[in-house]
Amino acid sequence: MEPAQETELAEALAEASGPVSVRGGGTRGVVAEGAALHYAGAGITLYEPGALTLVVQAGTPVAEIEAVLAAEGQRLAFEPPDMRGLMGTEGESTIGGVIASNASGPRRVAVGAARDFLLGVRFVDGAGRVVQNGGRVMKNVTGYDLVKLMAGSHGTLGVLTEVSLKVLPKPEVAGVLSIDGLSVGDAVAAMSAALGTPWEVTAACHTDLSANDRPSTQLRIEGMQASVTYRLDRLKAHLAPFGEVETTLSDSHDWPWFRDAERFAGGEEDVWRLHCKPSDAPGLVARLPEGAKVMLDWGGGLIWAAVAPGTDLRNTLGPFDGHATRVRGQGGGIPRFHPERPELVALTAGLRARFDPRGILNRGLMA
C-alpha cells in the first residue's frame, strides 16, 4: 500500500484486516510482519527560514529537504544518518522514517536528537484515526506530548503523515582535532575532557582502525572561521596531555565514517549499536568477542560493534546499564531490539492498546 493522502491512509488502516508493516523509504532494513505500507505523501508544506521552522509531509526524501535548507544556509542540526551503505539497501530515506526511528548522528552529543527538533506531528493511528499534536512554532506546550512519543516508536503507534521541525543555521566552517593511537579508555577520557570544556565540541568519536591503520580519536568544532580557529587552538592545548594533536579546517561538516557507520558498509559481519554511559564504554569494549571491530560516537555513549554473524552480544556482554540493538544481521533467533525492562512492559502495552487497539502496526517489532 502506498497512499499519497492522509485520508487514503486513514481509510486503509481502518479497513485493514491483518497486520501492516509500516516503512519509510526502506533504507534501514526494519521489516515487520504484514502487508507493506509506505506513506507516499511528500512535499514541503511550510518553510519560514526567518523563524527557523519547517513543516513537511512525512514521505518527503531527506535529501530534498536538505537541499532546500542548504539554499537558505540552514540544515537539520541532528545530522540524520544514511544507512543504505551499511544495510545494503536502496531507495531514499524519508523524513517520516528518520523521525519514527529518532535517527540522529554525531552532533547529538551537542545539540540533541531528532526528537529534540520536533515541534509537531500529524499521524494516523491503528484504528484509522487522524491525530495532531504539537504545533508549528517553537513555543507550544498545550496538551500531551505525543510529539516526543512518536519519535523512536518505529511505526508501532501510528503512521506519520506530517512533521514540524526546528532547523538551524549552517556554520561557516568545521574544525577537526585528531589524536592517533589512543586506547579506548584513553579515548573516552580525552573525549570527556573535550566535552567538558566551553569550546562547544559538536562531535566526539573514536575508531579502532582509521585510514592510517591506527586508532583515531576525532573531535569537531563548528562556527565562524575566526571563532573555530581560536577554539581549536585552545582545545588543542587542553588535550596535549593525551598525545600529539592535529587540527584541520574544512567547509565540510559531514562525518559519514561515523554518522553512517561507513567503515562497516559492505561487510558480512553482524553490526550492533550499544547505548551506554560513556564511562562504561571501555569495559564493554573489553568484553566484546575477539576480532570485533569498534567505533565510538557521542563521547563513548554509543558503541558500534561489528562481530561474527550470529553472535548474540546481549548474552556475551551480560546485563549493563543501557541497551543493545542488532542493526544488521539475520537468524539465530536474536531480536533486533533490546527486550524492555519488566517495569516498562505494561506501560508499553497500554500505549499500544490505546493507539493500535487491534495490534496491526508493526506487530512484534519492539515487543
Rank of each mutant, 00 (worst) to 15 (best):
I221D: 09
I221Y: 04
E222H: 00
E222I: 10
E222K: 00
E222G: 00
G223M: 07
G223C: 08
M224G: 12
M224K: 14
M224E: 14
Q225D: 12
Q225T: 15
A226M: 05
A226S: 15
S227Q: 14
S227F: 08
V228S: 03
V228Q: 05
V228P: 03
V228G: 02
V228H: 07
V228W: 05
T229A: 14
T229W: 06
T229H: 10
T229S: 15
T229C: 10
Y230N: 12
Y230V: 09
R231D: 10
R231E: 11
L232G: 01
L232M: 07
D233Y: 07
D233A: 14
R234I: 01
R234W: 01
R234P: 03
R234M: 13
L235K: 04
L235F: 08
K236F: 07
K236W: 08
K236G: 15
K236T: 15
A237Q: 14
H238K: 13
L239W: 00
A240M: 04
P241K: 11
F242T: 06
F242E: 08
F242A: 11
F242K: 08
G243V: 07
G243M: 09
G243N: 07
G243Y: 09
G243T: 05
G243F: 09
G243S: 03
E244A: 12
E244M: 07
V245P: 04
V245L: 06
E246W: 14
E246H: 15
E246P: 05
T247F: 09
T247R: 14
T248Y: 05
T248H: 08
T248Q: 12
T248F: 12
T248K: 11
L249D: 08
L249I: 11
L249N: 06
S250P: 10
D251Y: 02
S252Y: 06
S252E: 13
H253F: 15
H253N: 09
D254L: 10
D254N: 10
W255K: 04
W255Q: 08
W255I: 05
W255M: 13
P256M: 06
P256Q: 00
P256C: 08
P256I: 02
W257H: 01
W257S: 01
W257L: 13
W257K: 02
F258H: 06
R259P: 03
R259L: 01
R259W: 06
R259T: 00
D260G: 01
D260C: 08
D260F: 09
A261L: 10
A261T: 06
A261M: 00
A261Y: 03
E262W: 05
R263S: 06
R263M: 07
F264E: 06
F264P: 04
F264I: 00
F264Y: 12
A265N: 05
A265M: 03
A265S: 12
G266I: 00
G266L: 00
G267C: 01
E268A: 14
E268C: 10
E268S: 13
E268T: 14
E268L: 12
E269L: 02
E269W: 08
D270Q: 11
D270M: 04
V271A: 06
V271L: 11
V271N: 01
V271Q: 09
W272E: 03
R273M: 02
R273I: 03
R273G: 01
R273T: 05
L274N: 02
H275T: 13
H275F: 08
C276A: 10
C276W: 04
K277M: 15
K277T: 13
K277C: 10
P278K: 01
P278V: 02
P278S: 07
S279A: 15
S279W: 02
D280T: 09
D280W: 07
